[in-house]
């Protein structure tokens, strides 16, 4: 083996090692409550300043959610929990398609909720969890004058890449539980494929409602 070849190999290995280190540093476990606070404040800060979003540019909010929020959600687990007792009956391919469609629907819904944000204040409730916990609930209160505060609970699990949300409970209403009945009814009527079709049709209809040409990318 020539020296240059050995050097090249060494350089290659070194570069690989660097990449691994960088990834590890990036994925360094941020405390779940700190994560929720950071992401919420960042995203809300962008929405509050963006005139396009406030005037109804849906695509721009969706892009924002995809960039900033999506990485912190575990959509496979969310879908599994929403599909519930029918999940084990789905094939791997069906599971993948279900997750993809459900993700699209949730991103869309989340974006709408975000676009409706005006001047509510947030109270981030400190989390009392032990370092060994792998399943926590992070609570955020949305305060508004003349109305009861709305609680948003993020059920989060510790994953290798960091904490991820697997359910959002708004004012005591769990998103995952709420979809469970709907999904179960669809599966009873049309099977897993029926549910996938229904979700896809719903997403297509919603996508059509986005005014054309408002995309920011």
């Amino acid at each position: 083996m020539s020296l240059s070849k050995a050097l090249k190999r060494f350089a290659g290995a070194f570069a690989g090692l660097l990449a691994v280190c960088a990834a590890a540093a990036g994925a360094q476990m941020m405390a779940p409550d700190a994560l929720v606070k950071d992401v919420t404040l960042e995203v809300v800060g962008i929405v509050a300043k963006d005139r396009d979003i406030q005037s109804g540019n849906t695509q721009k909010v969706i892009d924002l959610v995809q960039d900033k929020v999506l990485p912190h959600f575990n959509f496979t687990d969310m879908t599994a929990l929403a599909v519930g007792q029918n999940w084990p009956k789905a094939s791997a391919e069906q599971k993948q398609r279900l997750t993809a469609e459900f993700r699209t629907l949730l991103v869309r819904t989340y974006a709408s909720a975000l676009a409706a944000y005006r001047d509510q204040r947030f109270e981030f409730v400190p989390l009392h969890a032990s370092p060994t916990d792998t399943d926590v609930t992070v609570r955020v209160k949305v305060l508004q004058s003349g109305a009861q505060p709305v609680t948003i609970d993020y059920a989060m699990e510790k994953m290798p890449g960091g904490w991820q949300v697997y359910d959002v409970v708004v004012g005591g209403v769990s998103l995952v539980s709420n979809y469970r009945t709907e999904f179960a009814n669809e599966v009873r009527d049309g099977g897993i494929d029926g549910l996938i079709r229904r979700l896809r049709a719903k997403n297509a209809r919603l996508a059509q409602q986005t005014p054309a040409g408002t995309g920011s990318k």
Partner: peptide
């Protein structure tokens, strides 16, 4: 999993 409304129990989820 109940097909009807079921309260959220993280332990159950896990």
């Amino acid at each position: 999993f109940s097909s009807v409304y079921e309260p959220r129990t993280p332990a159950n989820y896990q």
